[in-house]
Design a protein around this nucleic acid. Structure first.
Length: 201
DNA sequence: CGACCGATCCTC
DNA sequence: AGGATCGGTCGT
């Protein structure tokens, strides 16, 4: 299935942010753990483009300890805590000093499903990875993974997958950013049509 | 150091 | 539809 298992190189991320966000669909995220390997196919993403996007943590170039990684090179992991126990996983896709990230909102479980069930404490496959924090929980992603270089890490990385036809891709407004004023209506969310692991239909 | 609040999830 | 839950951030 993953014969090629070719890691995504940095040049993939070094392109126009919305295009990268869309083309992450169909790629695979791999997590190596002492208890086994977890693999998921990315089925839903969102773009956050800091300098002018009021939905972004780095809006107006806000630079704090949390957002610092967004100001570095592309292909690194931006992970943030939200609502207590939860974290979300993003990939830095803005060129140096220009904060921008692609949020991975949902993946389709591919392998390591038993371990995902254990991590999520549920047997319901549909409920393992169909949300940004659910997927992180299933994959054991924590704040410790903040700043990981996805192009060189042995524990957490992205690999090439099937190209998704544009006719199979849907686009919409982003989720849960009502505070973002005029930017909340930007259609910067991408997902694979009719995929049952997308967070919301 | 206290207060506010969220790129969510879960249960009702 | 509403509560849980706590780290990041900022103001005092």
């Amino acid at each position: 299935m993953l014969e090629s298992f070719e890691r995504i190189e940095r040049s993939f991320y070094e392109r126009e942010p919305l295009r990268v966000t869309e083309e992450l669909l169909g790629k695979y995220i791999v997590r190596e753990t002492p208890n086994g390997k977890l693999v998921g196919k990315i089925v839903e993403t969102e773009a956050y483009i800091g300098p002018y996007d009021k939905g972004s943590h780095a809006y107006n170039n806000k630079r704090t300890k949390r957002t610092e990684i967004q100001y570095g090179e592309r292909g690194f992991a931006y992970i943030f805590a939200i609502y207590g126990k939860n974290v979300c996983f993003c990939v830095v896709i803005g060129r140096k000093y220009v904060p921008a990230v692609a949020l991975i909102r949902a993946v389709e479980p591919v392998s390591g499903i038993e371990l995902m069930k254990k991590n999520r404490e549920t047997e319901d496959i549909k409920n393992l990875t169909n949300g940004p924090s659910k997927f992180c929980q299933a994959f054991g992603i924590t704040k410790n993974d903040y700043g990981t270089d996805l192009c060189t890490s042995q524990n957490l990385y992205l690999v090439k997958g099937e190209a998704i036809k544009s006719s199979e891709i849907a686009r919409s407004k982003r989720i849960n950013i009502d505070y973002a004023e005029e930017w909340k209506d930007k259609e910067w969310r991408f997902y694979i049509k009719n995929n049952e692991f997308v967070s919301r239909f």
